[in-house]
Amino acid sequence: MSEIAIKDIIKTENLVYKKTKLMTDKPLSYCPGCGHGTAHRLIMEVIEELGKENDTIGIAPVGCSVLAYEFMNVDMQEAAHGRAPALATAIKRLWPDKVVFTYQGDGDLAAIGTAETIHACNRGEKIVIIFINNGIYGMTGGQMAPTTLVGMKTSTSPYGRDVSLMGNPLKITELVAQLPGTYFVSRQAVHTPSAVRKAKKAIRKAFQNQLDDAPGINFVEVVSNCNSGWKMTPVDSNIWMEENMFPYYPLGDIKVDGEIIK
């Protein structure tokens, strides 16, 4: 295609996609191929579409997404490891009209912060929790996570996760779905365009529920890859995720409008 033809194509009326203004221009610090960036974008798109840019407070975790506040262009707080649901609880109770969400990884939410997660869910705090599960501690260099699959090799399970020594991978999303305090619980992925569309629908539902003052937590897990931690190419890691993570962490809604559906 000649240069002139490209110029003819780049026109406002031909625009089919634009970055949300609620993502900053700062280059993402995530590894190429990682799902975090897509998950960030979906949340920010939803907040923009709901018109809540000026009424949202987000909580970043400790882990790979510790710097989420650098990329999300809304008021943000950076919590200690695992404590985001406690921060969010107080914010929502003190500012009931605001939109409050946490963004947490598997080590943050399902290991060190398990108590904060379970009790925020059990109290039915009217917040959104976005839970990124890639089965590994990415930022600290690929150690075993509570969600690491049986037999999966990490730097602290170098011969594979051995259940007799290290316990089982924790399905915390199914666990919180059992609590009366959760209103919407869903598990999604962001590795294909179709998965992204479904994930965005679930995230939008979670935030809409909060705006509608639904009685309870809206909890969305995103099963994601960690190509660096898993020591694979991005493409291979996505195939590995489909073949190994999804059978153990099946995608889809688990609880809708306070009712467990699967």
Binding site: I57, Q77, A79, R83, A86, L87, T89, A90, I91, W95
Partner: peptide, 16 residues
């Protein structure tokens, strides 16, 4: 649910 949670509730609330 714990003193760990209550101090972090103070963090979140105080930061608003």
């Amino acid at each position: 649910e714990s003193e760990v949670a209550s101090i972090n509730m103070l963090y979140g609330g105080g930061a608003t």
